[in-house]
Amino acid sequence: MSQPISVSHEMDLAWRYASGEAMERFCAGLTDGRIEALRCAACGLRYLPPRPFCGDCRARLTEWVAVGDEGKLEAWTEVQVPMLDAGTGRPRATPFAIGLVRLEGADTTLNHFLAETGAGRLRVGARVRARWRSERAGTMADIECFEVIG
């Protein structure tokens, strides 16, 4: 019986994605520090990320509503595993905290980085606020993270 032979390699993959109309407007807003959601006229749900249709009502979404950059922490975790950063292809420094944030004026939650780790001030129901970058490019990274306030 031969020794098993295997090959290892790294593959650099390059992709380009079209945003679609709704996300294009949303991203343009981020550049100006503005968050907007699309509201379903049928069920009233205010969607982030904005998208063309309501999955529940099969209705086209056209009504833009303003969303605040403060909200409530609905869930959080502190990750100890060096997850691969899909933006860079490199492992992330640990620990890092992520959370589900329900922004004022939106009905879905947003998952994003949290400014602090540890169970001290991170708790379900905590008030959080977006920490904006000064240089913005119209991507979600324009919000660096959310920080606990109050």
Binding site: S8, D12, R16, Y17, A86
Partner: peptide
């Protein structure tokens, strides 16, 4: 709007 996002993935 178009975003370009490369990623490096290890295989074996």
């Amino acid at each position: 709007m178009i975003r370009r996002l490369p990623i490096r993935m290890p295989f074996h």
